[in-house]
Design a protein around this nucleic acid. Structure first.
Lengths: 213, 213
DNA sequence: AAAATAATCTAACGCACATTTGATTATCGA
DNA sequence: TCGATAATCAAATGTGCGTTAGATTATTTT
């Protein structure tokens, strides 16, 4: 089979998107390096030029997805809007983002837990130096996920203090709507009855109503 | 190693519970037959006396979990309560059930999708007879999951017709609170600040408020 | 243009895992 | 009590997958 001569080389970003795609379809364990490589017209071996190993690749997918969404949410928190307006915009941004990249969304939902409790491949081999760096990045992602959640909690708390919202259990209420959001990433289909922003609006209505004093 | 002579034999139910437990911790692909077997003090080979293969075992876990929760919800739907009371009881029953058996809950959330899109091991081997039976059971589980969701939709619709609830998009609203519920199964810890029934109450409050005309 | 580095490939390795085989022990119905 | 069936095991099989080694080609630097 003749090699395509000018098939220009692939970068990490391409691989991350492809990986998210395959991950969404198959889940981490069922996703092979070959699957991911095929998606970008490479061989499995070539991926190791870009990523140390499979676990690191997954981690990079999660990191990228997390930073992307936090980048969208954070400015809203620190704006001068009313708490209600903030929350509405945050909810919308989150859901729209999830529906626009369901691949990354699903990867984050399904694979995040493998960071918390899961045994990773590296656990048994002896490269402790690389392993420790990996564990550190792993914990950083978990911490970042918590910070993300805290952004929402902050706004709910603020709204209660300002008297815009009724007093609710901030932790539970936040987990309630974040759960609803994440779930969207699992059932949303671009071909469905409603678009992402329409779903977002309906859900924002629901939760802002539930917060009315 | 001397065999324990009177270690009485294990039944399918035991295996299903053990499997759900391991599944929760590791996810389907990362769960080995040996892991499950160890949980009930058997060897991997022995599991094949009870289940045709690994896929069938997963399927049985999902079937059992689904029937369990439907059995709890269905009577409420057909009772004489107000729609609001029905919904409150259904929400509570669902969440309490999820928190009482987080193993099965997580398995259902994470592994259900492998029924929809995933490639199962059997896909490539040639036993078409067994394979077709498997596919049939697989589709039955998916259909049953949809029926479960329809029970909730039904009550929301009924409440709107009776004027108890404001008119909402029934499909989206239902997916909203079911998403919130399922999420509970992923973060709930028995050692946490609130018990299952307390969480259930708070969430029911949220959604019933959002439905007020 | 030479040297250095980046990107990719083919081929091979080793291992963990699902599954099969065939034997062994327990239980139960007649 | 005996034959049948259920439940279990140890051992072997085959395969798919992550990963490595080493060579080859492309690109960038000097």
């Amino acid at each position: 089979m003749a090699r395509k001569p000018a098939d220009q080389s692939v970068n990490k970003q391409d691989i991350l998107l492809a990986a998210a795609d395959v991950l969404q379809r198959n889940g981490y364990e069922a996703t092979t390096m070959k699957d991911i490589a095929a998606e970008v017209n490479l061989t499995a071996a070539s991926l190791y030029h870009h990523f140390r190993n499979k676990d690191t690749l997954l981690l990079a997918v999660l990191e990228a997805g997390l930073e992307q969404i936090i980048g969208q949410i954070e400015p809203i928190v620190h704006s001068r809007l009313s708490s209600a307006d903030k929350l509405r915009q945050m909810i919308t941004a989150h859901i729209v983002s999830l529906t626009q990249n369901t691949a990354v969304a699903a990867a984050m939902i399904f694979e995040m837990k493998s960071l918390v409790g899961g045994r990773s491949e590296l656990d048994r081999n002896g490269d402790t130096a690389a392993h420790e760096e990996f564990v550190a990045r792993q914990q950083a992602v978990i911490a970042r996920r918590d910070q993300f959640e805290e952004l929402f909690r902050q706004v709910v708390r603020e709204g209660i203090e300002r008297g815009e919202f009724r007093p609710v259990d901030v932790g539970i209420f936040t987990k309630t709507f974040l759960g609803a959001h994440n779930w969207v990433g699992l059932w949303y289909r671009p071909s469905g009855r409603l678009k992402g922003h329409e779903i977002a609006e309906l859900m924002a209505d629901t939760f802002l109503r539930a917060l009315r004093p």
